[in-house]
């Protein structure tokens, strides 16, 4: 049965991909990409990749569509006709696709327990997580403890991306009261936003602190936080959301998250362990792991939320006329 759902979902993904290519209106393309990500998140759920599904749900359904729309709002919403013939790119794509399909022939069967990926370090992680780290979600233990260097690298990449967007787009503060003057009629949107804003933030905290036990963690929580603030900005305008969370604060937050992560590593070195060896953070090694994971997940969430909002502010503040997104 699950195979049937897999096949149908993959087919729908293909259809959505073709629809995206063939559609010329970019607003419609933005809608179709959000549908694409909804479908792929369902696929991840069927494949039992719950953490990935949560990430796709948080990023694909919300942030990436919103950022795409923010870019469209600055340019045109019609796709320009290509100035070159698509033959050479088509050939390259077909050749690459054929090579990839040829490559899959040597891959182990889907879900094969004897596949090399499942025999290298995965058994150790699965076996040791309950005793050494003491949390039920193995994904979090791998991401935040066994592979914490990787995650530090990823957070740094996100921080760098935020810095890069900031260098390219910057932030253009608007004079106050140039917007929101005739907006009194967005009543429904504002009421709904007021209702949902605290719920979204609460759920982000839940995802952050519950990441040890269920799907979730710092990355997803950060994105959900940012989505809450973006909803606020959509309903109440950029200058109001600036008062709620000013862009200078975001710069500090983006750096502070990475700093927290690094400081946890240095603290564990000062306490006699290795860099990011959480066992030494508390008297009991398992408690130390808990403390370390929670601290670095918090750092990740702060950086991710700040960077997503920096990118959003960067796009939206460039709109010359009143009106957001």
């Amino acid at each position: 049965m699950e195979h049937l759902i897999n096949i149908v979902l993959l087919g729908l993904l293909m259809l959505a991909g073709f629809a995206i290519v063939r559609t010329k209106s970019l607003l419609a393309v933005a809608m179709l990409t959000s549908i694409y990500s909804l479908l792929s998140a369902s696929l991840f759920v069927v494949l039992d990749a719950v953490d990935v599904a949560l990430t796709e749900a948080a990023i694909g359904a919300g942030i990436s569509t919103i950022l795409m729309l923010a870019a469209i709002a600055l340019t045109s919403d019609e796709e320009k006709a290509p100035r070159h013939t698509p033959l050479l790119p088509l050939f390259v794509v077909i050749a690459t696709g054929a090579a990839l399909i040829y490559g899959t022939l040597d891959m182990p069967r889907f879900g094969d327990p004897a596949a090399p990926a499942h025999r290298h370090v995965a058994p150790t992680y699965l076996q040791d997580t309950p005793t050494a780290i003491g949390i039920p979600n193995v994904v979090t233990s791998v991401l935040a403890s066994y592979r914490s260097y990787d995650t530090l690298g990823e957070v740094t990449v996100i921080f760098t991306a935020g810095t890069g967007v900031l260098a390219l787009l910057g932030f253009r503060p608007r004079r106050r009261n140039t917007e929101d003057t005739g907006r009194k009629k967005l009543v429904i949107l504002r009421v709904v936003a007021k209702l949902f804003f605290p719920l979204i933030l609460l759920f982000a905290l839940y995802v952050l602190f519950h990441g040890d036990y269920g799907p979730g963690g710092g990355f997803q929580a950060g994105v959900i936080f940012a989505t809450g603030f973006i909803l606020y900005a959509l309903a109440f305008g950029l200058s109001n959301s600036q008062q709620l969370i000013p862009h200078q604060l975001l710069y500090v937050m983006a750096a502070a998250g990475v700093l927290i992560y690094g400081l946890v590593g240095i603290a564990s070195m000062l306490l006699g362990g290795k860099f990011l060896e959480y066992q030494v953070l508390a008297n009991d090694p398992v408690t130390g792991q808990h403390v370390g994971i929670l601290l670095i997940e918090t750092g990740v969430a702060i950086t991710v939320a700040a960077v997503v909002l920096i990118i959003y502010y960067g796009f939206v503040s460039r709109r010359p006329a009143p009106g957001d997104i």
Binding site: V50, A57, D77, L189, I230
Partner: peptide
Amino acid sequence: EFLDIALVYVLISFVSTIAVLRVSANR
């Protein structure tokens, strides 16, 4: 526990719909 993911969708999937409508309304 898949319900967590469903909840995320409920909470944030409508934000992008609002964004589309705001862009088209502004334009």
